[in-house]
Amino acid sequence: MNLVFMELKAYRKSLIIWSICMVLGVYSGMVKYPTYSSDHAANDVLQQLPRTMRALFGMGSLNVSVMSGFFAFLFSYIVLAAAIHAGLLGSGIIAKEERDKTTEFLLVKPVSRTMVITAKLMAAMLQLVVLNALTLAASFLFVAAYNKGKDISVEIVLLFATMLIIQLIFLSLGAFLAARMQRSKTSGAVTASLLFGAYILGKITDLTHHLNVLNLLSPFKYFSTGALVDKQELSFTAVLLSLLLAVLLAAGAYYFYKKRDMNN
């Protein structure tokens, strides 16, 4: 427990900054909603945009003139930010001991490496939940302030549930790379590259349906935001497989961290 507490303390500042940025992000996104919805003129223009353009903006087939569509559109950026946080946190929390050369302090204590990873992942997961919950709360608040139509509380909760799963995937990916890579210091950069790669891949598959199989490589596409806001549906299989992916990556992190030579 001392380790969990220590990690939480070490990341306190970073979590506060991320939280503020997320809340501000939601706010600044929601402020624009009236222009999209009020006179429908903006929406008409947007509807006339070529499909590729709409896809690139992240709207796809969403109807951004109503709150559910607009929020889903905004959410695609929220989830990107949360994923970046999770990926960097996952790689950083593992790699920092070697980066700061503190392995000779921590790993000669009477704790196993398994316990070290468990404590670090627990501390990280707690941070993911806090960031998710605060962003969720901010979303409720600002949606309520601007929404004049149908209540979308269920949609919001479902969206943030998928976000938590995506956060978990990238957390595990970051931790896995930090434990696996020879030079763990660079794992943050690699995690971020993979993350952006996955994001861009998701954009590409939005443009054309021929490449949909590539969506397997992009956690951002594991959950269909469209179906979620239209039918309030969340695929149980997608949830299960995504969680399985996160667990497998985390198991890999344990495996490779135990085998690792701590050379500093």
């Binding site: 070490a10 700061d100 050369k101 503190t102 000779e104 302090f105 000669v108 204590k109 009477p110 704790v111 196993s112 490496r113 316990m115 500093n264």
Partner: peptide, 19 residues
């Protein structure tokens, strides 16, 4: 048996701690 390190005190040649 990492718990055996209860009885161990170690001073590394280069000391690095949480700054």
């Amino acid at each position: 048996h990492p718990e055996i390190r209860q009885q161990l005190g170690y001073l590394p040649s280069e000391v690095f701690y949480y700054e």
